[in-house]
Nucleic acid binder design. Structure first.
Lengths: 231, 231
DNA sequence: GTCTATAGGCGGATAGAC
DNA sequence: GTCTATCCGCCTATAGAC
């Protein structure tokens, strides 16, 4: 009986995966705003109404794609951090930044889905919150280890930012100093500024050797969160 | 005769403006990907075919909106720079960053149009290049004045980035040192990273006092391009 | 779980009269 | 420049048979 149920469950998982794959293909061609259940069904040789057994609505399919994308870039970041386990914090930081960028360049449409303009009329449900935080947690963890290890060097916090800094650090990393927490949030957003400009084409005819440019910029971001150039 | 022709020309300009205004309204509601000539016409009490006398295609309307948006944020940046004419470079820098952010927060959909995900199937024509560069030119100019005035302090350029840095500076600001040119490009993209994360909602439940947070982050970006805290 | 059929929309773009 | 009419396409979602 588990066999039968297992077979059905497997089929369901496979079809679900096929739907998401085809949807990702269409994301690339038409963008999230025009993602259409009908077109997905047509391409899979199904009839549109059949898809509703797998995803109750277009927005649920979109949510699944968003969660997958966050998980995918989050896993890439985690793997990069693990692979650079033995290196110094600044090098681990740079490795994670590179991994995020590499993922974005390899998956520009999924990147746009999660870090680009919000899809009009769509509001992300709670399910996306945890996956969305994975990259940030990796960056926090690198800074945490540097902080408890060799220490970090940060410029002083302006007085007017202190209350917010205390609040942020309590929220995201209570064990870290407020100045470090705000520096991390700033660096996090700035990392995605670099990546977005590359992926969205703003560097067209401006930056050409993007690998090298990015590596230097990412390293400086690491220094902005207090990671030291030499152990 | 100029009167008649002038009247016609005026009417044309007014209708063109009305079309763009209504299109901007729809941008906010449905996003660029779904911008529809028919819907614009409907809302204006026109018939869809009439719009084709003003914009030969949907993409031409989109281009007009993009150019307007770049000009709008560019003008905001230029005005902020002019208003802070007498201040020290770092304060002018911060003023311009604040102006860009304020514009973005006030016009989130136009911001998304130019700094968010590319519109699928749309490729920007040459007309957008000059308007798109206005904000960058303002930032370059602030750094230029600091450089020729009190000087700037920058970390050394990694060897492997030097060729690209030389190329970039030749392209965008031949009178500035290569290290400064690359720092400017990085800071430029990082500025929009901060703004995009705020406008696109990534700071939701992370940063709350966004004014203060942004002011500090923007100031540090200014320091990253070598602007000095005290004259 | 998949099918047909259907309701009730939407879109870009053009031709040709006025 | 604006109109009607038209071509030909698209969509989400549901009902009900199998």
């Amino acid at each position: 009986m588990t066999t039968v149920r297992g077979a059905r469950a497997r089929a369901r998982i496979e079809i679900t995966a096929a739907i998401k794959d085809e949807a990702r293909t269409q994301l690339a061609a038409e963008g999230a705003a025009k993602l259409s259940l009908r077109a997905v069904a047509r391409e899979l040789g199904m009839v549109s109404s059949a898809l509703y057994r797998y995803f109750p609505s277009r927005d649920d399919l979109l949510t699944a794609l968003i969660v997958d994308a966050y998980d995918s870039v989050g896993a890439a970041a985690e793997q990069a951090a693990a692979a650079a386990e033995q290196e110094r914090p600044l090098d681990r930081w740079t490795a994670v930044c590179r991994a995020v960028r590499a993922w974005a360049v390899a998956h520009p449409h999924e990147y746009a889905l999660i870090y680009g303009s919000p899809v009009p009329g769509y509001t992300a449900p709670q399910d996306t919150i945890v996956p969305a935080s994975r990259v940030g947690l990796v960056l926090i963890d690198i800074a945490r280890r540097a902080h408890t290890g060799e220490g970090v060097a940060l410029p002083p916090l302006p007085d007017d930012l202190r209350p917010e800094a205390v609040r942020i650090s309590a929220d995201i990393a209570p064990d870290l100093p407020p100045a470090l927490a705000v520096a991390l949030v700033a660096a996090w957003s700035q990392l995605f500024g670099l990546v977005s400009f590359e992926v969205f084409g703003q560097f067209h005819r401006v930056v050409e050797d993007r690998d090298t440019f990015f590596a230097t910029a990412a390293r400086r971001l690491g220094q902005d969160v207090g990671l030291l150039p030499r152990g």
